[in-house]
Computed example of a mutant assay.
Amino acid sequence: MDLSSLQPLVWDNKVRKGYNTTDVPLEFCMLQEKVAAAITAWRKGEERLGEELADVVLYVTSIAEMSGLDMGREVAVKVEKNAARPD
């Protein structure tokens, strides 16, 4: 699944379930919590690492939606920019 397709699905789920859709600073705090959980899972060699990383992606796409950004487009632009950098 690409990020541009994922973003509206994540957003619709948040709206349907009554999750935060307006407080960007809160969403960044929740993202930080998910990143910390992913680090812990990786450090402990836990099988839930993939699930925790997926949560990170979901929070990032939510923040992008709250900020009026298309995360798929933003990532594509950044990948091209990185590829054009000299070694």
Rank of each mutant, 00 (worst) to 15 (best):
T22N: 06
A54R: 11
T22V: 05
V56E: 02
K14R: 15
I39N: 03
C29L: 13
K17Y: 04
S62P: 00
W11K: 06
K81N: 06
N13H: 12
L6Y: 07
M30Y: 10
S67K: 10
D70L: 02
V77I: 15
D2F: 11
V77C: 08
E80W: 09
R16C: 01
G18S: 09
Q32R: 15
V79R: 15
F28E: 02
L6I: 06
L3E: 03
Q32D: 05
V24P: 03
G72P: 01
M71G: 00
V10P: 01
P25S: 07
L53A: 10
A83P: 03
L49G: 03
T22S: 11
E51P: 00
Q7M: 02
E33K: 11
E47G: 08
V75P: 00
S62I: 00
L69R: 14
D23R: 09
D70A: 03
K34D: 06
R85W: 02
E65H: 15
L6C: 04
E27T: 12
K17D: 11
T40M: 08
E65A: 12
Y59P: 00
T21P: 02
E51Y: 02
D70K: 09
W42A: 15
Y19C: 03
A54D: 08
N82T: 07
A54M: 09
E27L: 06
V79P: 00
Y59H: 14
I63H: 06
R48M: 06
R43Y: 02
L58V: 09
L49W: 08
A36L: 08
E33H: 08
E65P: 01
E51I: 06
D2S: 14
A64G: 13
N13R: 15
G50E: 09
V57T: 13
P86N: 13
L26N: 10
E46L: 15
L49Y: 10
R73N: 04
R16D: 14
L69A: 08
V24I: 15
E33T: 07
N20V: 03
E33M: 00
D2Q: 10
R16Y: 04
L6T: 07
T40H: 11
G68F: 04
V35N: 01
K81E: 12
G45R: 08
V35L: 13
D55H: 04
T40Y: 11
L53M: 11
L9R: 15
R48A: 10
R16T: 12
M71W: 07
R73Y: 05
L9E: 10
R43L: 00
L9V: 13
A37E: 10
E65C: 05
D2V: 14
S5P: 00
D70I: 01
V77H: 08
P8M: 11
D2G: 08
S5I: 04
M30P: 00
T61H: 06
E80Q: 14
K78F: 10
A84N: 09
D12N: 14
C29G: 13
P86C: 12
D12G: 04
A38F: 01
S4T: 15
V79W: 01
A64S: 14
Y19K: 15
K14Q: 12
R16I: 00
G45L: 03
A76H: 03
D55P: 01
A38S: 09
Q32C: 11
N13K: 13
S62R: 04
G72T: 09
C29W: 05
D70H: 12
L69F: 05
E47Y: 11
K78G: 02
